[in-house]
Amino acid sequence: MNGRGKEMQAPLKRARGLGSAKDGTGHFIWQRVTAIATGLSGLWLLGMLLTLRSADYAVVHALVADPVNAAVLVAFLLGMFWHARLGLQVIVEDYVHTPLTAALAQLAILFVCALAAIAGVLAVLRIALGS
């Protein structure tokens, strides 16, 4: 008998926040959602790259400036760097056991991914909207 009758908390409430990540299904679900988003937009961009016949500035610039391609690129950058952050986060959770180093690594991953996504989106906007 574990005194379940006197228990005021639901089992879920007790389980929440435990585990190395302090967080669970939200991460799992967003990892899958961003994987699908990255996969779909990435396939579009791969198709775009496969048609490329030269690395000429005017050709590549026009390709990225195309309204549809530019929109897919922005979606790809946001979804992909979010996905990268989630994946790298789990690797640090699994292999870095020193709390301070782990926290610094997590911050670095978050900042680099966010900054890269912002830089990429800004570059696409400059190309698409003409400097």
Partner: peptide, 25 residues
């Protein structure tokens, strides 16, 4: 996944070079 994350930074660098003009590209 780790390789792609590093490569993604090079991808963004390429986009910035493209935005920066013909010489940088």
């Amino acid at each position: 996944g780790v390789i792609l994350a590093i490569g993604a930074l090079a991808f963004v660098y390429g986009l910035m070079a493209l935005a920066g003009g013909a010489q940088r590209w």
